[in-house]
């Protein structure tokens, strides 16, 4: 993903202030415009039921008061613990399994039909099943996240292992590379970008499933809080938690995308090896 930047005049001095403000503007302009539009529309009461559509300023007010009262942090902490736990357990299962399935062809072919069936099950439809097995406590919520997260990383890992350039394998073999080293020195590094993409998608998915799981049966967490305020017609508070979710998902993706960019600077989709 080595983007080639077009440099207009490399000798021209760059105004750092201009560069940074330009970047900030591009990163936030559309979001700001949306929020302003919302504020104006709500204040002018351009919607049929104004009570369901509070202005943004009111929503942020609700958010601040939630934070002040400590509810926000408590809910956030509980939700993050659930999703991170589910996320990491999911990775711990998915990556080793994916490496095995990708590497041992026969094993993979044997297991593949079952994996296809499982991955096509809607995750949330399984929540009642997990509740039945694990009760309504933390275990069922974490395990449904594990399940939902598993497939993206698993399938990416499998395709990563299987799409290793045969020329690289040939080159390594010609230098006397044995099976174990071939796996560690060639197959694994070649598969890593694929695996990481799966991990990044899984992270976002873990938040989505968490929210849904909390809405369906919980007494804490940001998903529950949103659901609770909606049921009690405390609309600004409800929107406040929706904003929290948006920030959480976007932030997570942003961080992981940056890690990806830094770690895989060698990757160049346009060129060959």
């Amino acid at each position: 993903m080595a983007k080639k930047e077009i440099i207009k005049d490399p000798t021209a001095k760059k105004n750092i202030f201009l560069v940074v403000s330009r970047r900030v503007f591009f990163a936030s302009a559309s979001i700001l415009a949306f929020l302003i539009l919302w504020e104006v529309a709500a204040r002018l009461k351009l919607v049929s039921v104004p009570a369901f559509f509070p202005p943004i300023s009111k929503i942020f007010g609700a958010l601040a008061s939630e934070a002040e009262k400590g509810y926000l942090w408590k809910n956030l902490f509980i939700s993050l613990r659930r999703s991170l736990l589910g996320f990491f357990i999911g990775l711990l299962v998915a990556i080793p399994l994916g490496l095995l399935v990708g590497w041992f062809k026969t094993f993979g072919d044997l297991l593949n039909p079952l994996l296809q069936v499982f991955r096509n099950l809607p995750t949330l439809a399984l929540l009642p099943v997990f509740v039945m097995f694990f009760g309504i406590g933390e275990v069922s919520k974490v395990s449904v996240i594990v399940w939902g997260v598993l497939w993206y990383t698993l399938l990416n890992t499998i395709s990563g292992v299987r799409s290793v350039d045969p020329q690289l394998v040939k080159a390594a073999r010609s230098m006397g590379t044995g099976n174990l080293r071939l796996f560690g020195y060639v197959v694994l590094p070649a598969a890593l970008p694929f695996i990481f993409t799966g991990v990044r998608i899984s992270a976002t998915v873990s938040i989505l499933i968490l929210i849904a799981a909390e809405m369906m049966g919980a007494s804490t967490g940001i998903g529950y809080a949103m659901f609770f305020y909606q049921a009690n017609f405390l609309i600004p508070e409800m929107f406040a938690y929706i904003i929290v979710m948006a920030v959480l998902g976007t932030g997570l993706n942003f961080i992981l995308e940056h890690i990806e960019k830094i770690s895989f600077r060698w990757r160049d989709d346009a060129g060959t090896t």
């Binding site: 020329q167 690289l168 080159a171 073999r173 010609s174 060698w266 060959t272």
Partner: peptide, 20 residues
């Protein structure tokens, strides 16, 4: 079998892209 007493150089270079 293959061994380090022979070196193979291929048309497609086959360099490991993650190694400098």
């Amino acid at each position: 079998g293959p061994s380090l007493n022979r070196g193979l150089i291929m048309q497609g270079y086959a360099l490991f892209p993650w190694r400098n």
